[in-house]
């Protein structure tokens, strides 16, 4: 009972932190990027102000929208919120852990993407449709790469839930392996694509023709836009937590052992901060790609994922 209470409280704390801090992470990346470019940049809490501003705005509905127009923001937000509850942050062993199967996460991310693509097609305007077609193009390659990377994790950990994978990797039995290096490179490429960052998409872009994620939301305003923007922030946090808990699961707390929580929280914060720094540095040092380069970029990721698997098979062959 006490154990369950501990897990429950840890899950609650995790949920509160995830939902409260998602805008902060987005603001941190934006500020760091501006500083690295030599500008002063917005304050770190700027996303909170932007969300509050959207709360006060009137919601405009285009004439050509169908009755499903208000549905898509919620369908885009809800699976990402579920992902935020499933992906371990500062601790492993939360009460949502048994559900956090990697394939479920991939499915939830796909559901959110479907909602955003449908939102882009909803009003029948040109930029939204073009961006929707591009997003589908990217997703085809990203999903294949992600599944192949997942194979390496499952083969190494002999488990399929993110929580178990983090626990096994933290125990140190796996050690450093070439496969994990390839897998890291592949999953970073997929994460950059899914989160809509440079080199695939520019979240700060203002040219409709070059936008992907933003262009699908151009006809949304007010509270619906707020949900989409918040979902995008949540997605960045989910991807960073996911990569952090799989590739750097050390010092993560146990949900049923409250005395380990402070160290876990500190570590999580450190992981997210270093992730934000790495993302900002990477974004200022590369340019955005042409749309038809992205499939090649993701195919390389897929190839790296396959190589990670092949190295594992060869290692198992030599080992026995």
């Amino acid at each position: 009972m006490l154990l369950f209470l501990g897990s429950f409280l840890a899950t609650l704390l995790h949920a509160v932190l995830m939902f409260a801090l998602a805008p902060l992470l987005a603001g941190l990346v934006a500020t760091l990027r501006a500083r690295l470019l030599g500008r002063r940049g917005p304050p770190v809490w700027q996303p909170y102000l932007a969300l509050r501003r959207l709360l006060a705005k009137t919601t405009l509905v285009p004439e050509t929208a169908t009755a499903l127009y208000p549905l898509w923001p919620f369908v885009a937000f809800a699976p990402l919120a579920a992902c935020a509850l499933l992906v371990p942050g500062f601790s492993t062993g939360m009460i949502t852990a048994p559900l956090s199967d990697f394939i479920t996460l991939i499915g939830l991310l796909a559901l959110a993407r479907a909602a955003i693509v449908l939102a882009g097609l909803e009003t029948g305007f040109a930029f939204g449709g073009a961006a929707a077609a591009r997003d589908v193009l990217f997703s085809v390659f990203a999903e294949a790469a992600l599944l192949v990377v997942l194979l390496s994790f499952v083969l190494l950990a002999q488990r399929a839930t993110v929580d178990d994978i983090a626990t096994v990797f933290a125990s140190g039995h796996v050690g450093l392996s070439v496969s994990l290096g390839f897998a890291l490179a592949a999953i970073l490429a997929v994460a950059l694509t899914e989160a809509g960052r440079i080199p695939v998409d520019n979240p700060a872009g203002h040219l409709e023709l070059a936008m992907v994620h933003e262009a699908m939301l151009l006809e949304y305003s007010g509270r619906f836009l707020l949900l989409f923007e918040y979902a995008a922030m949540l997605r960045l946090l989910v991807w960073m937590s996911l990569i952090g808990s799989v590739f750097c699961p050390f010092f993560m707390a146990r949900a049923d052992a409250p005395w380990t929580w402070p160290l876990g929280l500190l570590c999580w914060a450190a992981k997210l901060c270093s992730g934000a720094v790495a993302l900002a540095v990477f974004e200022i040092s590369t340019a955005k790609m042409r749309v038809f380069r992205v499939p090649e970029f993701l195919s390389v990721a897929m190839l790296l994922g396959v190589l990670a698997g092949v190295f594992l098979f060869v290692a198992a062959r030599i080992g026995t």
Binding site: L55, T58, L60, V61, P62, E63, A65, F74, T123, A126
Partner: peptide, 22 residues
């Protein structure tokens, strides 16, 4: 939760407008 929070805190109602279309 998002629906209820938006009902409570966001500006209510929606206005129908011509599509912006860039």
């Amino acid at each position: 939760a998002a629906f209820l929070l938006l009902q409570k805190f966001a500006r209510r109602g929606a206005r129908e407008v011509p599509v912006w279309n860039g």
